[in-house]
Amino acid sequence: MASLPVSPLPADLGDGVVLRRYEMTDLDALWSAIEAERARLAVWMPFLRDAKTIEDERAWLGSVTADPRGLAGGSLWRADDLLGGVGLVPDAFGVVAEIGYWVRSTEEGRGLVTRACRALIDIAFDELGLHRVVIRAGVENVRSRAVPERLGFTYEGVAREEGRGSGGFYDLAVYGLLDREWRP
């Protein structure tokens, strides 16, 4: 397994887009993107509740950059433009990781999130040796659900009202992918 090629970060996603880890110097770019997309993203994204000021984001960036090998703070860039966030968070047992993502409205529909997920899934299975990757998406969030569906995840159920956004609680569709399914 260790001999398989992996996709280290930064990963070139094509079309001039790179997936790399956030750095503390990205704070202003991140805050601008959040401010611009807040209303649209807050419907689904719980993290926006905790991102009330730029200081909240500074603290979050500090937490995801603390571990230089961590993948929670993955981000999409075209030159100096922040296009979105795609992060992978492993559990404490080294078995399961969850991927979460958002993308600027202007970048929707290009497959950037799907490509970034592919790079992170490669790392999860080949480098971290994880067994299972989970994506949860709002049942009514069609674009978000299309990502795991395109990547061959299996739809496993609905965690009722497990999500919480600006419009209240919402149902989350749960998708799972196993290592043996990714590289049969």
Binding site: F93, V95, V96, H131, R132, V134, T154, E156, G157, V158, A159, R160, E161, E162, V174, G176, L178
Partner: peptide
């Protein structure tokens, strides 16, 4: 509680990976 799904291979046990049934109640 209501059965909401089956999370495949979601638990590592001493006897290997096992499916988890997820139940929820509001």
């Amino acid at each position: 509680m209501r059965q909401e799904g089956v999370l495949r291979d979601a638990e590592r046990t001493p006897e290997g990976f096992k499916d988890l049934v997820i139940f929820g109640i509001l």
